[in-house]
Design a protein around this nucleic acid. Sequence first.
DNA 1: TATTGTTATACTCTATAACTATA
DNA 2: TATAGTTATAGAGTATAACAATA
Lengths: 159, 159
Amino acid sequence: MAKHKTDTAEQLTCSDVSDATLRRLLGYRIRRASNVIQADLATTLAEFNLRMITYTALVLVVDNPGLRQSQLANAIDIEQPNLVVVVNELERSGLIERTQARTDRRAYALQATAAGRTLCEKAINAVVKHEERMLKALDSETRRTVAEAMEAISGCKKN
Amino acid sequence: MAKHKTDTAEQLTCSDVSDATLRRLLGYRIRRASNVIQADLATTLAEFNLRMITYTALVLVVDNPGLRQSQLANAIDIEQPNLVVVVNELERSGLIERTQARTDRRAYALQATAAGRTLCEKAINAVVKHEERMLKALDSETRRTVAEAMEAISGCKKN
DNA sequence: TATTGTTATACTCTATAACTATA
DNA sequence: TATAGTTATAGAGTATAACAATA
């Protein structure tokens, strides 16, 4: 808690700044935790020359072979024009390929290459370790409770 | 779960895209929930002509009168140059003031104006309603568990 | 006429270097 | 020499309009 004896900054050191009002909100705490996780995840993925968005796209292509770009953009929840550069990056790295979709000559069927599948597996293993590092203070029941709570919040999107 | 019968996209509709691998990670779910909350919060704050960062800064100045910009930047965890535009915005809106710090003529002591305190209170009330909207599916014990879990994760920052 | 992928563009958010005035 | 605030700038991330090819 901060000191409120006077209106001057001299009473306040850095660690004295009170964010008690904000911390009362769960959304504030969730965002802070999310930021800490994202920062560590970015470091983890950098070893594989992946960004979070390219990692997410790679996993989805590996798990959903033949995916079209419009479907992938929808799944990641980004605009199609922004996905183009993500797919370009993954293709230039030799991790995925654009193959012509059979029934629609406008569309591409995205496929992971062997190298893409290999890197994806390694990256997933590293991310699992990152996850364990982040969550080591939480027992498995707490993790389950948090997981369900996050799904419930995400489900609030339209109501 | 997605269908994996063939390598073509024709089997996949949008809702069929499997993110099971990603969803296994709590970090992924936390980020998704955080995004949903942030989007709703932004809408909530727009009614007060506040962005999330200006809202956060305003609350901290109201709660910590006399705060210096360097302390505020540190509390929000943004770089000083980026805070300058935030403080400019709040000052131009008449919500806070830069007053000379008594003991250091380089520094400013940030103070909320009467209008700033009034708007802050209204905004906080709206944010509390937003929070209740987001969390209505969670009972109070779950909320407590999640709150503690988020703090534990945030505390993992340096280890 | 609508959709897939693309280009160009703009706007926000964030990060760094360099400056000024003080300390 | 170091610090508080500032300026300028550059890099991400994200959003929209408009186009070509195809449905």
